[in-house]
């Protein structure tokens, strides 16, 4: 499944890097601790978080994640979107909270 399919099925807002919507999704990882994601996420996963600052893009890029989804209506900082465009890794958003979104993503990926 591609990031764009996930975005369509879950009704996600695309904040940045629409060129990255073709990236393949291998799974998901839900965490707000950057070291946890750094150490334990896998390549191609979608990262679900409420962190909005630029460092999430550094982690997503270093770990080759497919995309980031911000929960609870949070929006990315301006420099986060800038880096997202540069890296071609989309930042998406939803009003759902992390538990609900993780469940929905799990359902469509299984």
């Amino acid at each position: 499944m591609k990031v764009k399919d996930v975005a369509e099925k879950l009704g996600l807002k695309v904040f940045s890097a629409p060129q990255g919507l073709e990236r393949e999704v291998s799974g998901g990882y839900t965490s707000d601790l950057l070291s946890d994601v750094m150490g334990h996420s896998q390549e191609g996963q979608i990262w679900i978080t409420l962190q909005t600052h630029k460092n999430i893009m550094a982690v997503a890029s270093l770990r080759d994640l497919a995309a980031i989804i911000l929960v609870k209506g949070f929006e990315p900082d301006a420099d986060t979107m800038e880096l997202s465009e540069q890296e071609g890794i989309p930042v998406l958003g939803t009003r759902m909270q992390a538990f609900e979104l993780s469940g929905s993503l799990y359902e469509i990926l299984k």
Binding site: L33, L34, S35, D36, M38, H53, N55, I56
Partner: peptide, 16 residues
Amino acid sequence: EMGFGAGMGLPNISEN
């Protein structure tokens, strides 16, 4: 609050 400082840094380095 930024999601750093969870006490995982040095253990992550050591593991890898």
